[in-house]
Amino acid sequence: MREFTKSFIWAVLLGFVITLVCIPIIKSCYEYITRPKPFPRYAVSYAQIKKIADAIAKYEQSDNRRPDSLMTLVTRGLISPDDLFSQRRRRRPAFDITTGRFETNPDVLYFPGLRKEDPARLVLLCTIMPPGEGNSLLVVYNDYHIEELPPKKLRQAIQQTYYQLTKRLRTITTKPATAKPATTKPATTASITTGAQKR
């Protein structure tokens, strides 16, 4: 009976240790094989975002305002459609003529409400996916300064941008109404009414 007890205790220890060592190895191998694929990291590169920022600056100089959307820059010929999409995409998303937009959003986020006189450290353009293998994201500030930021810092900058935009919106909506009417009738409505009046 002594031999049994002695070998039993040693075997329990050995089995316990070997299993504890093997489990994480087997588990990590299993997780690696069966892992779901993350969404491809589509983001514009540094050169592309710089080109877009330069185009916005050019547009602002000529029109004295920022473009409503990045598509305006494309239609003006300031950037090519390829500048809006990641080079990792196999093909550029198709352009929808009816909506005047691409079937997927450009791989860069644009904040059209910002103005030149807003604080310089607000976000004008940014990527929410990292353009490289690392974790840092590209940001173009309101003064056209380009920087790479970790996600945590970008979150803070975006939050401040929303606060600023809301502040501006609040000042606009609380302004007293001017003598000018808020809405004007479209040209088509006028011709229809005149047609009805004639009848």
Partner: peptide, 20 residues
Amino acid sequence: RRILGWILGIIVGILLALLV
């Protein structure tokens, strides 16, 4: 008896490790 001890011991050891 020694062989039986080793076999039973390893099984119990593995079960204990899985439980932990």
